[in-house]
Design a protein around this nucleic acid. Structure first.
Lengths: 116, 116
DNA sequence: TATAGTACTTTCCCAAAGGAAAGTGTTATA
DNA sequence: TATAACACTTTCCTTTGGGAAAGTACTATA
């Protein structure tokens, strides 16, 4: 009988990576965290700082980020009710990921460009 | 007239991050890179090492990773034709991202668990 | 009175992601 | 002869992501 060679296990790495990807999925979560983190705290400011995002998508993503405790939504009562968004302490732990992606994005673009 | 305050720009970070996310999108690309990187070079081994991935999805993702020059597909002629997959030099630059995601996944799970 | 700003919501629609299950063609082994 | 491995492909179907455009409710300002 053909001997079946066992595959190498990589679950120690794959499982936590998938946990992270489940929370950060889609094109918009990290860009929104970056935008709020950099000081944009109003809905419209966030929208304008991220090219291509629609208000529907932004509203949905903000809700999910709040559920994952990565941002806070703060309502200030007043004549015009104001809503502002802020990153949580927990979201600060995302910056190593963001910087790693930024570096890689720059590196990858350079590589592709130099070949073309 | 109400004065419109300009939003803070974060494009320097958002754009390269989006470039990276465009290449690494979906749940499977990084787990596949991890699996191949750890030594699984056969289709079936990769499939078995990643819980939940179907052969259809794996085949599609492998093609995309090859196009992005993150893996090589090598065919060895013989009585049983063998196909094997290997990571490229370029894919090694992804490990900072993978480790950052792994650390964050572990951290996030611990945080959520401690609250429940 | 009219316009503009703020923070969304709603509707419609399309494309991509992805799960389930079965099938294919070849070769090797019991 | 029958089974099993290997590397997929094919079909079907559901879910999710996300774009476009318009609408809503409120307030402030010209």
């Amino acid at each position: 009988m053909a001997v079946k060679k066992a595959h190498s296990s990589c679950l120690d790495t794959v499982k936590p990576v998938r946990d992270a990807l489940d929370v950060l999925n889609g094109k918009w979560k990290l860009p929104i965290i970056i935008s709020i983190g950099v000081g944009n705290d109003r809905f419209t400011d966030i929208q304008e700082s991220i090219p291509g995002i629609s208000p529907k998508v932004l509203a949905k993503e903000l809700k999910e980020l709040e559920q994952h405790q990565l941002i806070n939504r703060i309502i200030t009562e007043g004549y015009p009710v104001k809503v502002s968004y802020h990153t949580t302490k927990h979201s600060e732990t995302l910056w190593p990921i963001i910087y790693a992606l930024k570096d890689w994005g720059l590196h990858h673009r350079k590589k592709i460009f130099n070949q073309a």
